[in-house]
Design a protein around this nucleic acid. Structure first.
Length: 465
RNA sequence: GUCCCUAUCGUCUAGCCCGGCCUAGGACACCGGCCUUUCACGCCGGCGACGGGGGUUCGAAUCCCCCUGGGGACGCCA
């Protein structure tokens, strides 16, 4: 174990989204590579918005992606005593003070400042206040220095400097007594011994005030690595209107976790020209040095391409297991039909998602599938009847029901009738699958088995009027 | 508005730190061709970028400055 300790700290106010997943992934990869410790912490100080369902959803998504952690999950809602003690410590030392301004007053001042073109900043009304009006609710503010500057070396962006006069006295404890984000994140990262904070770069602006807080509380300041945001096609922050943003939604859409992990890793990080990475490879090759500095646009097409790749190269047995659910969603029962792994093999090169694969696999398990009207009119015509009947005879005589035996039967039919495969292949396909797009007909025949194949062929012949 | 971050093909990016090997490489998408019993896969080819302006230098995508564009933050949310 190296000294590296990183963490992922989502707030349970919704599902795990694409951006959060990538932050978690980077933390996970680095901790594994450096043999450090990966801590999971649930930031649920906003009691009103946090839910157990969200926590469960996040945990489930991380598990699906294969992002395991070494410590936690810790819940901030269980650590309020600690935070309260720390707030008290700051108040006692004069580094924090009570503020009796009402939320309404503050809001009005903020709007006025924004309107006047100035940066909204707390005006310090209660800064020198010494009275303690009874019964008036108050918040606790951290006193920020107004001179000098705060600078830190970001592992991804380089040195970042803020003038302290840009900062104001932030609220660290609400009027209901609960602590706020900027405060607890510092206390926890310090108390949990986090040595490197990897998070979205929307947190860069919070960093200087957090650094000041570390100092005030007597904690060592960790290192920071701010990862660029993920944007939608219109270059604005990725959100629901850009399509699915929930990690689990991709599972339901038929994506494989390794495809999403690979995609997310390559969005903002690279290793030369390499595009395909297994989790093991990512752990071996990941490094902060190769993380880009600018925001990236989420590209669903590339994710789809990666998914197709992993479906193509995946283990049929495993894919079959994953496909089961998608088939069930279509109302397709696989019991009694051809073995699913065999079916999967015929579709791996054709399906880009498991949903597509389920669509393509359905006909194998439907005994009474309808014939596509157009395909039927075009291919299941009266003049094809003799060839199909000849084919049935040949197939009945095949001794070994495998690809080779089936192919030999077709060759015999072609010799017997003088017809090319192009002349009657489509008719066979429609009879077997109901439509014009399917895996190769020899494969379908083989997987379906002789009796079912013959039954379907007979059904096709019977449909010819 | 203020502050912070950022800037190579439509998109993800290599190259930039240590200037010349860059007539800028790869991938997705798109277009064309090949393969072919359908749909796909695959293979081959094509289209396509250093935001603009100043410097520094024999030489700049690479170094410096300005402008512009894009993103983010400015909550008793995290």
């Amino acid at each position: 174990m190296s000294a590296l300790r990183v963490r992922f700290a989502p707030s349970p106010t919704g599902y795990l989204h694409i951006g959060g997943a990538r932050t978690a992934l980077f933390n996970f990869l680095l901790s594994r590579k450096e043999q450090g410790t990966f801590v999971l912490r649930i930031e649920d100080t906003d009691v009103a918005r946090s839910t157990q369902e969200s926590t469960d959803a996040i945990l489930q998504a991380m598990e699906w992606l294969g992002l395991s952690y070494d410590e936690g999950p810790y819940y901030q809602s269980e650590r309020f005593d600690l935070y309260r003690r720390k707030v008290e410590e700051l108040v006692q030392s004069g580094l924090a003070y009570r503020c009796y301004c009402s939320a309404e007053e503050l809001e009005a001042k903020r709007e006025a400042a924004l309107k006047a073109g100035a940066k909204p900043k707390y005006d310090g009304t209660c800064l020198g206040r010494t009275d303690h009006p009874a019964g008036v609710p108050f918040v606790v503010r951290f006193r920020a220095p107004q001179d000098g500057e705060t600078t830190f070396p970001d592992r991804i962006k380089g040195a970042i400097t803020f003038q302290n006069e840009e900062l104001d006295d932030l609220i660290i404890q609400r009027s209901d007594g609960t602590p706020t984000y900027n405060f607890v994140v510092v206390v926890d990262d310090a108390e949990m011994g986090i040595t490197l904070v990897i998070r979205g770069d929307d947190h860069i602006n919070n960093t200087p005030r957090q650094i000041l807080l570390y100092g005030a509380l007597g904690y060592p300041v960790p290192e920071f690595a701010h990862v660029p945001m993920i944007l939608g096609a219109d270059k604005t922050r990725l959100s629901k209107r850009h399509g699915a943003t929930s990690v689990m939604a991709y599972r339901d859409l038929g994506y494989l976790p390794e495809a999403l992990v690979n995609y997310l890793a390559r969005l903002g990080w690279s290793h030369g020209d390499q595009e395909i990475f297994s989790m093991e490879e990512l752990i071996e090759k990941f490094s902060l040095e190769n993380v880009g500095r600018s925001a990236g646009v989420f590209n669903p097409e590339k994710l789809l391409w990666l998914n197709a790749h992993y479906i193509k190269t995946g283990d049929p047995q495993r894919l079959a297991g994953l496909l089961e659910g998608h088939l069930a969603a279509l109302g397709v029962a696989t019991a009694g039909g051809p073995p699913l792994p065999s079916v999967v093999r015929t579709l791996q090169e054709r399906a880009k998602t498991l949903v597509e694969m389920a669509d393509g696999a359905a006909f194998y398990y439907r005994e009474d599938y309808p014939f596509d009207a157009e395909a039927c009119a075009k291919h299941l015509t009266a003049d094809r009847k003799p060839v199909l009947e000849a084919l049935v005879r040949r197939l009945e005589a095949v001794s070994d029901w495998n690809h080779q035996g089936i192919e030999e039967a077709f060759v015999a039919v072609m010799e017997e009738t003088g017809l090319k495969l192009g002349k009657f292949g489509p008719a066979v396909r429609v009879a077997l699958s109901g439509g014009t797009a399917s895996p190769g007909i020899y494969e379908v025949l083989e997987v379906l088995g002789r009796s079912e194949s013959l039954r379907r062929l007979g059904r096709g012949i019977d449909s010819i009027v």
